[in-house]
Structures are given as structure tokens and as C-alpha cells.
Amino acid sequence: MHWLVLAISIIFEVIATSSMKYASISKNNLYLIIFAIFFSFSLAGLFYALKKIDLSIAYAMWAGCGITLISIVGFLIFKEVITINKLIFIVLIVIGVVGLKLSA
């Protein structure tokens, strides 16, 4: 159950970060409200996950998977450029997160 909550928290973090980007582009304060709500839910879920998952693992998963997913969102939705260097370092983040999980 805690892993599921962590996964949902990661998705909420990606929604929150995307909303922040939309707010900066559109100047629409509704996106800031969406950001605040989803980021709060994301942190609450991370808090819950920390009850059963080690801090080093949970936070690495939350941050690393969030970075990876938000990079994909940036590329697909916001038309951001993904260079080979960005791709390499995102893969290294994923390897690091998987390595932490496997070592636990």
C-alpha cells in the first residue's frame, strides 16, 4: 500500500510541477491553485510512504521518478528540447534510483 501511495504522490508531483509551468506561461492564477493542491497531496503521500519505506529510498524514488516524468512532460507538452546529454543524465538518475531500491 505504501508503494502505491508513493507512486500516486509522484504523479501528483508531476501534475503540480506542470501546473507551475502553465502558470508561468499563461499568468493564470488557477494553475497556481492546482499547483498548491497537488503539491500538498504529493507531500502528504510522501509523508505516509515514509512510515514504511526508508527515507533514502522513498525520497530518491519521489524525486528521481518525478524528474524523469517531468522531463517527458516537458518534451511532449511544452516542446522542450531533449539533448543526448539530458537523456544520458536522466538514465543515470533512473539507474541510481533502481540501484538504491535493489540495495535496500
Rank of each mutant, 00 (worst) to 15 (best):
Y59C: 06
G66W: 03
V91L: 13
I33P: 11
L102D: 06
F38R: 00
S71M: 14
I11D: 02
K86S: 14
V81N: 13
I90G: 08
C65R: 12
L32Y: 15
I10G: 05
L55E: 08
W3A: 01
L76R: 09
I25V: 03
M1V: 08
N85F: 15
I34L: 01
F39I: 11
F75W: 09
G74K: 06
V94A: 12
I67Y: 06
K52D: 12
A23E: 00
I57L: 04
F39Q: 07
I88E: 05
F75Y: 09
L102N: 07
S24D: 13
E80H: 01
F47P: 15
V94S: 14
A49F: 03
S18L: 01
W3R: 01
W62E: 01
V91D: 11
I34A: 02
K79A: 06
L43Q: 02
N29L: 14
I88W: 10
T68W: 01
L55P: 07
I15D: 04
S103F: 06
W62M: 05
V81K: 11
I34F: 09
T17Q: 07
I93C: 12
I53M: 02
K52W: 12
G66P: 01
V81R: 05
S9F: 03
A16H: 00
V14C: 05
L43I: 06
I88M: 07
V98F: 12
S19A: 04
V98E: 10
I33K: 11
L100G: 01
I95E: 13
N85P: 06
A7P: 00
Y31D: 14
F39R: 11
M1I: 13
F35T: 07
G74M: 09
A104F: 03
M1P: 13
W62D: 00
A49Y: 12
I88V: 04
E80Y: 01
D54L: 07
T17W: 04
S9I: 11
A104D: 13
G74I: 04
K51F: 09
V98I: 11
V91I: 13
K27L: 14
S26C: 04
S103L: 09
T17D: 00
T17S: 06
Y31S: 03
Y48E: 14
I90S: 10
K21N: 03
S40D: 13
S9T: 07
I72Q: 08
A49C: 03
F12D: 11
L4G: 13
V97R: 03
V97P: 05
Y22E: 15
Y48W: 05
L6P: 00
T83F: 08
A23K: 09
M20R: 08
L30D: 14
I8T: 05
G99V: 09
M1N: 10
S42H: 01
I82G: 10
A49S: 07
T68M: 11
L87Y: 12
A36P: 13
L100E: 00
F41A: 04
H2S: 05
S26W: 10
K52T: 13
L6S: 09
S18A: 03
I15R: 00
I10T: 04
I82H: 13
N85G: 04
Y48Q: 09
F89C: 11
S19R: 01
S71H: 09
G99Y: 15
L4E: 02
I8Y: 02
I72R: 08
Y48I: 10
K21L: 04
G45I: 11
I15M: 04
S40I: 06
A44S: 13
